[in-house]
């Protein structure tokens, strides 16, 4: 019926959507294009070249950025693995352990990192670490990242677990599986897509963080975002654009992966 399709359409909404996508993508595309600029000046166009990509890997600042990238990666992997395990256990408690005292409070606690403004978390962590005499460094960054990764890992995991009826585990336990076996052999395999997307989400969130890291990192220790921020404060240089483009590519690959994992999970059920 023509009438019902017309009700879905409002004049100008397509134009707004296109404009919205344009604003979202224009800066990223411009930076990606300029990262191939041969000229040393960042505004004049001097032809296509890979100079700045070469500079990222071999230039004078290369060791600094490589160390920063390595730090970012180590922290993101460790923090997201720990957060995913902790979040999975919490999700089991929330969806499979019936009602118990303090359940609502625990739910609020898990989501606390999402509710406290990032800048408050950052300064509070710094003050806390210095009060208990923790030397700031990689460990403090790792701890802080694990904290705010937990709710991000928890969301997809618990959403997935809620959508799985417990009859499969009940069936396994009727056939004399222990609760531990029912968890390992039945629930966990069913949960894999949720756990994977929780892990990927936590991983990206950890790589993304600047503000909290900037406060709890020790002197001389940099992650990629803090190194880039330090460099940008002295002006945007072409090698920053090359690094940005590389990180952009990594993010897009990761999101596409997690999107595919999510679709895979949907098709299975």
């Amino acid at each position: 019926m023509a009438g019902s399709t017309n009700l879905r359409r409002f004049p100008g909404f397509l134009a707004v959507t296109i404009a919205c996508l344009f604003v979202l993508y224009a800066p990223l595309i411009v930076v990606a294009v300029y990262s191939f600029n041969a000229s040393t000046s960042i505004t004049n166009w001097g032809g296509v070249s890979l100079t700045w990509y070469l500079d990222v890997f071999t230039g004078p600042e290369a060791p600094k950025f490589q160390q920063a990238a390595l730090n970012s990666l180590i922290i993101a992997v460790c923090a997201s693995v720990i957060a995913t395990i902790v979040a999975t256990l919490a999700a089991v408690a929330m969806t499979r352990a019936g009602g118990f005292r303090g359940k609502t409070l625990s739910f609020a606690l898990i989501n606390l990192p999402l509710m406290v403004p990032e800048v408050v978390t950052a300064v509070a962590s710094l003050v806390f670490f210095s009060a208990i005499g923790f030397t700031t460094g990689l460990t403090t960054i790792l701890i802080a990242h694990t904290v705010f990764c937990i709710p991000f890992a928890y969301l997809p995991i618990s959403a997935r677990m809620q959508s799985i009826p417990d009859m499969y585990e009940q069936a396994a336990m009727d056939l004399y599986a222990t609760p531990r076996e029912a968890f390992k052999l039945v629930l966990l395999p069913l949960m894999t897509p949720g756990i994977l997307s929780g892990f990927l989400l936590a991983f990206i969130i950890s790589l993304d963080d600047f503000l909290i890291t900037n406060f709890v990192k020790g002197a001389g220790i940099e992650t990629l975002p803090t190194a880039i921020f330090g460099s940008v404060k002295q002006g945007i240089k072409p090698n920053i654009m090359a690094i940005s483009t590389l990180m952009l590519v990594v993010s897009v690959v990761f999101v596409s992966l997690s999107w595919l994992v999510g679709r895979m999970g949907q098709e299975k059920t």
Binding site: V30, I204, S244, M247, V252
Partner: peptide, 10 residues
């Protein structure tokens, strides 16, 4: 999903 810092710098 692109790093917030990179988006802001862009």
């Amino acid at each position: 999903w692109v790093n917030l810092l990179i988006r802001t710098v862009s």
